[in-house]
Simulated assay, not measured.
Amino acid sequence: MKIKQILNNNAAIVIDEQEEKIAIGAGVGFGKQKNDIVISSRVEKLFVLKENEKLQQLLLRIPEEHFTISEEIITYTEKRLGTELSEHIRVQLADHISFAIEREQSGIKLKNKLLQEIKILYREEFEIGLWAIQHIKEKFQITMPADEAAFIALYIHTMKLQGGDIHETVKQTTIIQDMVQTIKKYLNIEVHEADISYERLVTHLQFALSRAKWYESHVMDNEMFEMIKKKYTYSFQCAQKVAQEIYASYQIELPEEELGYITLHIERLRTH
């Protein structure tokens, strides 16, 4: 493959099999000129240019070291999860990390309002996020808060889904947070995020939303459902309130059977 354009020391546009591609690898563009030959063994990743024009734009826009550390985070993540991540979102992750580094260098710190929910819903991704901010600290002597680890976790979770949408991931997590806030307000209680009952509730709400999206529900026989309604009246009313509010805000309808299961989780949270 021959070089057509140098993007930075570690990236170049090349002609490979009569097709323009972006070649990424240590030293791929270092000391090179147009029409120089690139040794294939140096190329770690190869992308078809017409499908990755945003990647080309990104490589020209952000500091090279920001893109490099993003790739290192992706490589670590793929090894940790044992799966290849979607290419569709690596540009967004690199862009986000570059912006986050610039923010920290400017003394601007953003709070992640979904921090507690992310820690529970995407536990392994959050642990990777913690590794990522430690890696950034070692490379750039920049200390980032756990809030940033949670932001990175959302991107990683989305990258696990082929063609996933970061906005959809954020939306679902926000809905879950709204549901939890409704429960806490209705019950007038403060909940410790490390409480196992809280974790079970949040996890169940995630699955409940997924089932509602695909018009699926837990099968609960009518006799059991009626017993739950009578025995845990207050918690069931709370579950109804949750259903009413997410329907009003997001037009998501939870079936009554699902409310029975949510009631059990609310009752456990209320009494433990």
Rank of each mutant, 00 (worst) to 15 (best):
F30K: 10
L269T: 06
Q92P: 13
A243H: 05
Y122V: 03
T263P: 06
T83M: 15
T83F: 11
E267K: 09
N188S: 10
E199H: 15
I101C: 01
I6P: 00
Q141L: 15
I228C: 02
E104R: 11
P255I: 00
H167A: 13
K213N: 12
V242C: 06
K139F: 11
E127C: 07
N35H: 09
K185D: 09
Q177C: 12
T169P: 07
I266H: 02
Q33L: 13
P255V: 00
V219S: 11
E223V: 07
K34Y: 12
K21H: 10
I15E: 07
S41Q: 13
E267D: 10
M224N: 12
T173M: 03
Q18I: 14
K139N: 06
H135I: 09
M224V: 15
E84Q: 14
V202C: 06
G82M: 09
K137A: 09
K119S: 06
K229R: 06
A100Y: 07
V28S: 05
I228F: 02
G29F: 01
I3K: 05
G260A: 02
Y76P: 00
V48L: 09
I13L: 08
V242Q: 02
H192Y: 15
A194I: 13
R211W: 03
L161A: 13
Q162T: 12
H66C: 07
L264T: 07
K34E: 10
M144L: 12
G82C: 12
Y215M: 14
S41D: 13
L114Y: 03
A11P: 04
Q177P: 01
E72R: 13
E253A: 15
K32W: 08
I266S: 02
I69R: 04
L55I: 04
L121Y: 02
V14M: 02
K171L: 14
H88N: 13
A132W: 03
L85V: 06
E117N: 09
S217T: 12
L121D: 01
L49T: 00
E124Q: 06
D178T: 12
Q172C: 10
I142N: 06
E72N: 12
L7N: 04
S210F: 15
E44A: 11
E127I: 05
D221F: 11
E127K: 10
F99N: 14
L201H: 08
M1N: 06
G82D: 10
L254K: 03
H135E: 13
Y122E: 06
I136D: 00
K229P: 03
N112V: 07
Q240E: 14
L264P: 01
Q240F: 07
I175Y: 05
L55A: 01
E64K: 01
I89P: 07
Q237S: 11
T203L: 14
L7F: 06
E223Y: 07
I3R: 01
A243V: 05
T169Q: 07
F47V: 04
L205P: 01
E65N: 11
Q105V: 10
Y250L: 03
L154N: 04
A243G: 09
T203S: 11
I89C: 11
